[in-house]
Design a protein around this nucleic acid. Structure first.
Length: 250
DNA sequence: AACGCGTTCAACCGCGCGACC
DNA sequence: CGGTCGCGCGGTTGAACGCGT
């Protein structure tokens, strides 16, 4: 079986995203949704792989993302979940609204893993003098740490702020879209978005057509030449009608 | 100021899975 | 039922940054 490449690498840009690319991606996804990541860059006027667009959106651009500043509670949850789930970062991220699997993974490797290792060394030394000098770096070996007894309750509590609803792949409910990522708005110039027809209200607080974010493919069937970026000049409505029946299915 | 080294994290890559035809 | 496609996941990479000398 020959697997088709996810994208034409010869035409694709790689590396860090520019503000302009971010702008295009945000504008497109907020307006039309991620109906097809593979096709999306073509219609959004981006010379990027669809996977790259998806990753950029999920891990960085989408609203309601918390960045940095992990609370002690969050770290305890991550440690606890990692003990039970292992490296299933998406499952862990599902328990931490606003956190992405990629970010959690990075945080684990850069902070928590080292911290646990230090703790384990201290614990080993204090528990057994006989073991002095026998400590060695066991690589991925992790040890139990002092996880608060209520951490499981925290995880299981859907009424807490740590609702299990959100994950990297389940991220756009109206609940968790409650615009906590206002840094994005305040730090960057998003005046361009005023040019787009946001259906109603503030799209950060009522974004992505409410809960109907994922749209069927025919929802956004392109009408015009996909090579003509709809970001060139006036927005010219490159897509067909909205199929309200399909819309209602979501 | 310049250099080297360690750390961080955004982004890439390859693979597996499920849906569809 | 097998082939294809798109998505999601986890591992890895490398540029950017910070810090010490």
């Amino acid at each position: 079986m020959v697997r088709t490449p996810c994208c034409d690498k010869t035409e694709q840009k790689k590396g860090a995203w520019t503000p302009e690319e971010d702008t295009k991606l945000i504008a497109y996804v907020t307006r039309y949704g991620s109906w097809n990541w593979r096709q999306l860059p073509k219609y959004a006027g981006l010379q990027r792989c669809g996977k790259s667009c998806r990753l950029r959106w999920l891990n960085y651009l989408r609203p309601n993302i918390k960045r940095g500043n992990y609370t002690k509670e969050e770290e305890e949850i991550i440690i606890s979940l990692h003990e039970t789930l292992g490296n299933r970062w998406s499952a862990i991220a599902a328990q931490l609204p606003g956190r992405t699997d990629n970010e959690i993974k990075n945080h684990w490797h850069t902070n928590l893993k080292k911290r646990l290792r230090k703790k384990s060394v201290v614990a080993t030394r204090s528990c057994s003098d006989d073991d002095k000098g026998q400590e060695k770096d066991t690589g991925e070996t992790e040890v139990n740490t002092q996880i608060p007894a209520n951490s499981a309750q925290i995880i299981g509590s859907s009424s807490s702020a740590l609702s299990p609803q959100a994950s990297s792949s389940d991220f756009l409910t109206t609940d968790n879209m409650a615009a906590t990522n206002m840094d994005l708005v305040s730090d960057d110039d998003f005046s361009f978005l005023e040019a787009y027809e946001i259906p109603s209200g503030n799209f950060w607080t009522e974004p992505f057509l409410s809960d109907n974010y994922f749209m069927p493919n025919d929802f956004l069937a392109p009408l015009e030449d996909p090579d003509s970026s709809f970001f060139d000049g006036e927005i010219s409505s490159p897509f067909a009608f909205i199929n309200t029946e399909d819309y209602n299915l979501y």
